[in-house]
Amino acid sequence: MLGAICGDVIGRPYEFEAPTTNYDFELFTDQSRFSDDTVMTAAVADAILNERPFDEALVEFGLRHIEGGYGKGFKAWLLDVNRQPGTSYGNGSGMRASPVGWLSGSLAETIGLAWRSAMPSHGHPEGIKGAIAAAAAVRLALEGKTQEEVRSVVASLTGYDMNRSVEQIRANYPRFKVTCQDSVPEAIICAIEATSYEDAVRKAVSLGNDADTQAAIAGSIAEVYFGVPDQIAERALATMTPDLRQVYDQFVDRTAHLRPAIR
């Protein structure tokens, strides 16, 4: 969860007005703060930690932080008093899924919980697939799978083309694609090919696409392999509101037994 939060905070300044393809971008700026990625990640964590329905938690946290930077469709879903299960295939289902990997007991449980976390708003098959891919990558890393093993299993679970390199993606990447199928595998590949937490996030942001979401997904996986440097964690966590920090602290307490698994 920490890796996702930090990725979101680092990527946010480069999401809309100022996308960058420069790997050496400024890591923190005066615009670095959490966005909808962090809010929805906290909502998913809260639902699992406190055994609440996912739709209830997503709506509660979403409305509390309604100006978090949601896509138009998801914001409309939040504000609709007569809301129905959504069929989005946007990458919002993947960006919020990392707590599932930590709070599951197995890959099979991860897949089921990821499916449930996506369904309230992202019930399209591609939306579900994006959540499963992001959560499974985290779970596989926690189970000690190598980065290359994660590549193979995610491809098997989803049918995503995971054989590309970051540089191959960069050479052919369309600007600002926010669908799961056009951003989740790319984000996972950034983590698979990373040599450090910061390297994963820099790769994800500098693809020049949906920077904060891709960095959140890549960062959530890279956290397991490399940990998050203290100076990055401190800067990102300092931007959080008390309600989000409360969920984060509860999550850290619940997952303390998994921390030795972080290399």
Rank of each mutant, 00 (worst) to 15 (best):
D80V: 06
A137M: 04
V205E: 08
L237S: 04
L113F: 11
D253R: 14
G68T: 05
K75M: 12
Y225M: 07
T41R: 00
D253E: 15
F25W: 00
A47E: 10
D36V: 09
I217D: 09
A215H: 02
I189G: 01
T110W: 07
E56I: 02
N172L: 07
L244M: 15
D24C: 01
V166D: 04
L237E: 14
R139Y: 13
Y70C: 07
V228A: 08
G73R: 12
F61P: 06
I217A: 07
I48S: 04
S93V: 03
S32Q: 09
A97S: 14
A215N: 03
Y173V: 14
A131Q: 07
R164G: 04
V224N: 10
F176G: 01
R116P: 00
D161K: 08
A47C: 08
R259H: 14
A76I: 05
G92C: 03
P85L: 12
N91V: 03
E143G: 06
L237M: 13
S196I: 06
G219W: 00
L258T: 04
P120I: 01
D253I: 05
W102H: 11
L103C: 07
F34H: 15
G130E: 12
T213P: 02
Q147G: 12
V9D: 14
V201T: 03
I189S: 01
V228T: 08
V205N: 01
H122E: 09
A233D: 11
E234Q: 14
I48W: 05
L244W: 08
E60G: 02
I66E: 13
A191G: 14
V247H: 06
A134P: 05
V100S: 05
P19T: 12
S152V: 14
P120Y: 10
A261L: 15
T110S: 09
D24K: 00
D80Q: 09
E223A: 13
P85W: 03
T21R: 15
I66P: 02
L58E: 13
S183H: 02
E198W: 00
A171W: 02
V138C: 03
T20L: 04
I66D: 10
F61H: 12
V184L: 03
E26I: 06
K203V: 03
G7I: 01
E198R: 03
I217N: 07
A133N: 10
A171Q: 15
F34I: 06
T41M: 12
G208H: 00
D161V: 12
E51Q: 14
P19F: 07
D30G: 01
V39L: 08
G101V: 13
V228D: 11
Q147T: 14
P229C: 08
Y23F: 15
G62E: 12
V252L: 14
R202W: 09
T41W: 05
S183P: 06
V178I: 15
S152W: 04
D253M: 06
G90M: 03
R83F: 11
M119F: 12
T87H: 14
R259Y: 14
S117H: 00
R12W: 08
S88D: 10
N22C: 09
R235P: 03
F25V: 01
Y70R: 00
G90N: 05
D30E: 15
R263A: 10
K72D: 15
E143R: 00
E17D: 14
D36Q: 07
S206M: 01
C190I: 11
A216W: 01
L78F: 13
